[in-house]
Design a protein around this nucleic acid. Sequence first.
RNA 1: AGGGGAUUAGUGUAAUGGCAGCACGACUGAUUCUGGUUCAGUUAGUACAGGUUCGAAUCCCGUAUCCCCUGCCA
Length: 609
Amino acid sequence: MTEDRPRNFIQQIIDRDNSTGKWGGRVHTRFPPEPNGYLHIGHAASICLNFGLAREFGGKFNLRFDDTNPAKEEAEFVESIERDVKWLGADWEGEFGGGLYFASDYFEQMYAYAVELIKKGKAYVCELTAEQTRECRGTLTEPGKPSPWRERPIEESLDLFARMKAGEFPDGSKTLRAKIDMASPNMNLRDPVMYRVQHATHHRTGDAWSIYPMYDWAHGLEDSIEGITHSICTLEFEDHRPLYDWYLDAINEGRGGTALGGPALRAGCEEEPETHGSESRATVWGPTIHHPQQIEFAKFLLNFVVLSKRNLIRLVQEGHVDGWDDPRMVTISGLRRRGVTPEAIRTLCEEVGVTKFNSVRDMVLLENAIRAHLNKVCPRRMAVLRPIRVVIENYPEGQVEEFEIPNNPEDESAGRRKVSFSRELYIERDDFMEDPPKKFFRLGPGREVRLRGAYWIRCESFSTNEAGEVVEVRCSYDPETRGGSNPPPDGEGKVRKVKGTLHWVSAAHAIKAEVRLFDRLFTTESPGKTTGDFVDDLNPDSVEVLGECKLEAALADRTLDEPEWVDGIRRFQFERLGYFCVDDDSTEAKPIFNRTVTLKDSWAKQAGK
RNA sequence: AGGGGAUUAGUGUAAUGGCAGCACGACUGAUUCUGGUUCAGUUAGUACAGGUUCGAAUCCCGUAUCCCCUGCCA
């Protein structure tokens, strides 16, 4: 790898594996979501990590739905997750794609492995209730007590397990448990449940199963079957790793020969499977199965948001937001609707890196990553969000000029577009002050400013309504500043200067639009931390809808100079205001734009002081 | 005497016994037809205490603090 970037600890592990030939140079990762909710930016970090490693090392990346609990899972979530993962660019079908899988497709194989463990005396059917199981488990400081069913005959467990599968027993009446160590200081090893009875309709297998595997039992098997080399998960599973390994080792006990991870999957991999002995050692249990390495990293956390699934669901269900794809949500679909690009998210994930330390990332990092990308690729446009009318008194009535304004001052290849200018215009309300302070570089009585790409104008007078609000500003323009350029020097050779440049829209040519401004959903860094309930920290002003915005005509329809966006979302920089995109709800009759993020605003910062 | 993981500028992240570096932020200044962008500069750090060593962020010992673990969730 030709990397001058620092390498994170997972890359270093893979470097080492490759140099020792542990996996024969193979790198196979996966993203294993449970389809019980929408993906958020924290998941994006995991997706970028896993897919990024597959790409970097020329390996494969699987998308696998960990659908082992029918009570919580729905097909709707499968669809949204596929869409989001694809949008992020983690293509499970492309060059580095290993494919799309469902844990539920492995249920039969998992069942067979479970039977094997019973036969080996490593698992037993337990008839304790959930509550009794809990009581027997002990506490963090006291060992547990063995289940009375722990030493029952193998044949009995085999029979009962088959009947559990056949649906003979009610929910919660029996479990299959691994026989490990009720005194282990690691709670996960105190005879964990492998299967529970659950008569539920699964979104893919329907009513075929009345028992469902638990995460710890299922997950390693899924990884094994798919030939995953590096099974990357979050820190809270560190305590589960001994169990992950125990299950795989227990299956492999008494097995021999070639390790196989899903033959179908292996067909696409060129390297030799690892060998744990000669073929002749194969036993009644069959060949050794593949045993991936679990690696844990710290979750991606962001300040000023909530990220847990439970809390996101609450925001949606209690109506604090407008659905999973509300632009204020840090769900992938919310970010997409907000106008964020996958590139920005990928850059952010790259920048923050991967560690084992639980740290909270600053929201401004996300905002900066968005600005950095959008600044390069967005065509500039002019839009007046809170218009006030400007009349150029010395500009001929009925005259219209067209100015060609660059779409991107730093990128001539972005082209130019035509903008109409006339006697009556709109400028931003914030760009005029009756009694401006000294450092205000915009319009005020007697002051002169440049209209971007058009002319310099000077404020001659203004009028207000009964409420004292400015309703109209009357100006004169200097014909010698055409195109916005400096006027010729005066008699003494001095060139007149102007401090400010304003955006503007010709009143007669403007299109009307709705623009939605978003602010942070929460007012505090860690919502709920001091109030106890994150709902109490909701920002009441997180959305502002402006219905009377005036946009330059080029924004009406997609013009030829606009870039092609792979996700089809039109994005722009509205000069001096920020980055905006066309909302899903937008129609020709009623255009709607969302503000993705503001520009940096050092004036607002200074004015706030 | 429960177990596991962690701690480096304000924030995040490198340095894997050999010059503590980078990014973001903040603050200057320059450039600019966006108070944007860009450029230059300034700022500030190894949790604490002992030890090993010519030399320690790194190894050893102790302490402190934080996170995770007692679902038939994942």
